[in-house]
Design a binder for these strands. Structure first.
Lengths: 344, 344
DNA sequence: CTGAAAGCGCTAACAG
DNA sequence: CTGTTAGCGCTTTCAG
């Protein structure tokens, strides 16, 4: 626990000015190789590490883009990190993941961070905002909203947005089940008052039913428990159990893969087999779904495309293109083994 | 995209000095309620958010403790986040998770962050260091190493350490399998050259075998693939497949639960049933293990205790107690459904 | 209670 | 090529 080393200490020790040290550690061309080497040796010797706060305060612009993530437990988001990292590096940017917990506003975090780190841009992963354009008014760098419940923002042409149509995709999943002959189709959806992803996906379920002339039955709707973390295996398990105890159905649509895995367990404990006795469809397309037994049929979000587009939109915006775009991709139904056709 | 608002702008607009604004936003007692309210209203009106770099640079000490995590994909680590957050808040500290990617040294990240944010202390989750005391020499705040391969550091009484004995626990798992009558026991372990957790757990496996007089058979050892991310379901699946194709065994020990889930799939695809045909034991005790079918027998790390102790040690150190301690907990064998006894 | 002023550690002109 | 110096935006004495 030695004392805080500063650039001054290094300069003094080397018998040079602080700017020389600064040049050395920042690979500035305007310094002779000899001095640079000498300084760097001292830097290394004392394990000197500059203070980023001072650095960030001083510099007028950085080269950093932040990924602001709400919901660390979201395994689908996690699977996108790597793609973002790689792409952003390739574009010559530094990259930073900033986790924001449930009780902090993403907008505030973003603005704080942007000031603190002189960000070049930010990408939001999850985290609903009432009105992004308003909440992010003070965010004076370009940003794109990735993977948010897009239709919440429907008439919102003033932000960059990359998303899927949650309602339409849900509808697709449920229609698939209907095609396979199912009519009693249960759903595990988000909290009862979820107006974001959960709400969207539930409405898609309702639409599919309506279009097929199947009556909507509230009994078949399992809302995630309030006292268990949302979108977890545990919650899926709990809700599926209740559903199974309450009523009959031949198919179950889970609005997230990780939830479906919990449902598998409840189904198994009820003495039933997934697919043979009860068809299951998930949503997201996480890797784990390949490894469940049986493997999980699901709505697979085009995450690579979404990552790429998010970065592209951001790059455009950074390079001065100030017409925001909304990209709504369609997801694909990934047919695996968890759905069986039944006789009408 | 308005211009960067600073404390000066607010001060000017309010017709007060900057220090007054500072007092208002920092809940400083030395300000009249009236002025404070007035200032705060303006702050809100313009959505002014202070610049943390400036703030951090100026303040001599913060109240922040950082959790430095190597390996974001580590689901076991993730399950500890919440506990750390809660406990640290309870102790009156701010809390910060800092992810470090595979190609950055945790030690450097830690020192940088400590300077930048004036940290009060840091807790490391994963991330091996050659010699922590040396690498962290410049880290001038207390720290504790949590969940690291403890015996790498065996004679290392100069750092705070909270861990389990990976070798001993592995040994326990394998002995349990032996007790159940298994003699052909395969293992899925880390990369071939893993000297940390993977290496430790492999050595425990060897010891159990040796003590039971069972010959060590390299054929039964599945090293994780180099070209697939380590400790993933996918890697577990790949390695289990190879193992299954190569040789016979009645039990499989996976050195991480998430890997075991991949093995389940490979076993199923080989036309076998987990438990009935092939017993499986995992390691870690993640939640998901409760929901696999059959549920996974595993070595469960006492994560709550580990979290609590880590925080306790750190608090002690922060409060001036400078004798480091090494706490090595024993994990418990969680008997679930994936192991069956067999006839000798 | 309030404002002026002195830095926190660093980078980037600017002058040598 | 190198050193001196002026802030970056904020907190915190120190006078008033």
């Amino acid at each position: 626990m030695s004392d805080q080393l500063t650039i001054k200490d290094i300069a003094k020790y080397c018998g040079v000015g602080v700017s020389t040290v600064s040049r050395a550690i920042n690979d500035d061309p305007g310094i002779s190789p000899k001095t640079k080497e000498r300084v760097l040796k001292v830097v290394k010797k004392f394990h000197y590490i500059p203070n980023n706060s001072a650095r960030n305060l001083k510099i007028q612009e950085s080269n950093t883009i932040a990924l602001i993530v709400r919901g660390l437990n979201n395994i689908f988001f996690q699977s996108m990190f790597d793609g973002f990292q790689t792409l952003l590096y390739k574009n010559g940017y530094d990259f930073l993941i900033h986790l924001v917990d449930e009780n902090t506003a993403v907008s505030r975090s973003a603005i704080e961070l942007a000031k603190e780190k002189r960000l070049k841009g930010v990408i939001f992963l999850g985290g609903q905002m009432e009105d992004p354009a308003v909440e992010l008014d003070q965010l004076d760098v370009p940003y794109v909203l990735c993977t948010v419940a897009h239709s919440m923002y429907t008439p919102m042409p003033n932000v960059n947005l990359v998303a899927i149509d949650d309602a339409a995709e849900s509808c697709k999943a449920v229609k698939y089940l209907i095609e396979k002959g199912h009519r009693r189709i249960a759903i595990i959806t988000g909290h009862k008052d979820d107006r974001a992803v959960g709400g969207q996906r539930l409405s898609g379920y309702k639409r599919a039913l309506a279009e097929a002339g199947i009556a909507y039955d509230e009994d078949l709707v399992g809302y995630m428990e309030e006292d268990i973390p949302e979108f977890t295996t545990e919650n899926g398990y709990a809700v599926a159990r209740k559903l199974l105890a309450r009523t009959d159905f031949t198919a179950l649509f889970c609005i997230s893969d990780i939830t479906a895995i919990g449902a598998y367990k409840a189904i198994s404990e009820a003495g039933l087999n997934v697919a043979d006795d009860l068809s299951v469809v998930g949503f997201d397309g996480i890797d784990l779904g390949r490894f469940t037994i049986p493997s999980l049929t699901t709505i697979s979000q085009p995450k690579d495309k979404m990552v790429k587009s998010s970065v592209d939109l951001l790059m455009k915006a950074i390079n001065g293109d100030d017409t925001p775009r909304q990209l709504v991709y369609s997801a694909s139904l990934l047919e695996r083994e968890s759905v069986k056709a039944i006789e009408r």
